[in-house]
């Protein structure tokens, strides 16, 4: 059973009388444990696809089964639960909460999942340790470099142990050494069994994954598995 089944997904915006197509006839199956990279030129619909998979956006047509459950037919509450239970997000612009410290940023998703305090503490301690951020745990995002912020972003995304990690150009704002650190992290996570879907412009970072989906003008032009 694939984790994600998309059939005939279509997304468009209406401006005035004109329809602008973003996604067209997308049919995709993604299995648990895959590390998928979505590539394509600007405006190809990469982020929109990622947001639809992440249940942040809805298509105009088509069906989306997540673990065999039809996502868009379920109640919002239920969808929120699924989203909360299975997904973690990493953004290009990191999107840490400015008014929270490193520690508190990582803690936030755990709070929304009502995890007990001592358990939270041990999870965060472990993550800080793993990512070498222990000394920076009380700093605010503005006091960190971009690379460090993104590390916190990844730590926060995986804190609640999601099954699926969605990353929208996670290295887009980073220079190459910082980017590699992040990608190495992803590779590790994938090796540990996490399903990852990333959007990137970088050919090099695409090779970290197990499958590359190429979008153009909203269509899937190419879908290939790569050996690693």
């Amino acid at each position: 059973m694939p984790m994600i089944q998309l059939s005939n997904i279509e997304r468009y915006y209406t401006t005035g009388l004109q329809k602008t197509w973003v996604l067209r006839q997308i049919n995709l199956n993604i299995n648990a444990g895959e590390f998928v990279t979505i590539m394509g030129p600007s405006g190809a619909g990469k982020s929109t696809l990622l947001n639809i998979i992440g249940m942040l956006d809805q298509p105009n047509n088509g069906e989306f089964l997540f673990l065999d459950e039809p996502v868009f037919q379920m109640k919002e509450r239920h969808r929120n639960e699924l989203h909360k239970q299975y997904m973690g997000f990493v953004f290009q612009a990191y999107h840490l909460i400015d008014d929270l410290t490193v520690y508190e940023n990582i803690e936030t998703p755990l709070l929304y999942r009502k995890i007990k305090k001592n358990e939270r503490q041990s999870i965060i301690a472990e993550l800080l340790d793993r990512f070498n951020m222990v000394a920076k745990k009380d700093l605010f995002p503005s006091q960190l470099s971009g690379g460090q912020q993104q590390i916190v972003g990844v730590a926060r995304a995986i804190a609640a142990k999601p099954k699926l990690l969605l990353a929208d150009e996670p290295t887009g704002n980073l220079h190459s050494t910082q980017g590699e650190v992040i990608m190495d992290l992803f590779k590790q996570l994938h090796a540990e069994g996490m399903t990852i879907i990333q959007v990137t412009h970088s050919e090099k970072y695409a090779t970290y994954g197990s499958r590359i989906i190429f979008l153009e003008d909203g269509f899937v032009r190419n879908d290939e598995r790569i050996g690693s």
Binding site: G54, R77, N80, F89, H95, I97, P109, Y112, R156
Partner: peptide
């Protein structure tokens, strides 16, 4: 931004 991030982190509208 904060609102968006919190929602992706699992916050409901009620929260």
């Amino acid at each position: 931004k904060e609102i968006g991030v919190r929602k992706t982190l699992g916050s409901s509208v009620g929260q």
